[in-house]
Computed example of a mutant assay.
Amino acid sequence: MKKTLIILSIIITSCSKDYYFNKNQEKISKVLKEIKNADSGVRNFGEFVNYRYGIRDFDTVADSLDEINKFNEINKFDFTKIPSKEKQMENWSNNKINLYHEHKLESVKLMEYVDNINSEKLYKIIKRNGYPSFYKRPWRDTITLRVGTAFIFTHFNYETKEEKKLLKLIIKEYFSGRIDEGEMRQIMWSVEGRNGYPYNYIIDDNKLKEKLRML
């Protein structure tokens, strides 16, 4: 009897999320776009600090190649040849070094603040409406409403109490069939340490179930 009630509860919750997703698509899309813009804004600010001080890293070099229409050369570029940040700062004055670290710390704090807000908003969306998958959910308008946000989930620190709750919810949504496998690979690749490339990550359902039990 207890097992039957649990199954019924899961079915009712799942139907409820599908109902609210279909009903609230405009609101969901609006919030997702706000989250995406905030996420992009704080990370652009962090990269702006590097541009301002002339620091070269993966992002600044990739952006430079993109600006001169050589984005396809990113795969050919040997990023290991970029000198370490310490090497690039060798001839800087102490004042310039201190200012750089001060501005980078400001950008990191701002990023953490925005990430915390974004993760809270996404948790609320998923809890009520289910995961807003770019591929798996039936968006009424794929041009104006559908928003891709899987990459944003790779920016969170899943060691905190609140974001462990978010990860638990994400795994449940995956097993409910509301998250595309590619989106889940991208998220779990980040959670598991970002080794290799996201789409080479192999999802192990048993491993996911074990992680779910531990969260």
Rank of each mutant, 00 (worst) to 15 (best):
N129Y: 01
I68N: 00
D204L: 04
P138L: 01
Y201P: 03
R146E: 09
I6A: 12
S107D: 08
F71S: 12
F48H: 08
E210C: 07
F48S: 10
V147M: 02
S16N: 11
E163V: 08
D180G: 05
L145S: 09
K23T: 13
N75D: 13
I125C: 07
S84W: 01
I126E: 06
E210Y: 04
T160N: 00
Y113Q: 13
S40L: 03
L208E: 15
K165A: 07
F21T: 09
F134G: 06
T60A: 04
I170G: 05
Y53C: 00
N94G: 11
Y113E: 15
K17L: 02
E181C: 09
V191R: 07
K27I: 11
N44C: 00
N37I: 08
Y131K: 08
D18Y: 12
D78V: 01
N69H: 14
F77C: 10
D115F: 05
G193I: 05
N37Q: 08
S16Y: 05
K36D: 01
I126R: 03
I7A: 15
G196E: 09
L167Q: 07
I10T: 14
F153M: 03
F156A: 10
A38W: 04
K17E: 06
T149N: 10
H101T: 04
F71E: 14
A62P: 03
G196N: 12
E26T: 14
K209S: 05
S107Q: 06
Y51K: 02
I74F: 09
K36A: 00
P83F: 11
M89K: 13
T149A: 10
K30N: 09
G196A: 11
I10R: 15
D205G: 09
W92H: 10
N118W: 03
N37M: 09
L145Y: 09
F153I: 01
Q186D: 15
G193N: 02
R178F: 01
S64M: 02
G41F: 07
V31H: 02
K124H: 11
L122A: 09
F134W: 05
E210A: 05
K124R: 09
S107T: 06
R140N: 11
I170V: 12
I74G: 13
D66E: 04
I179F: 12
D66T: 04
T144N: 06
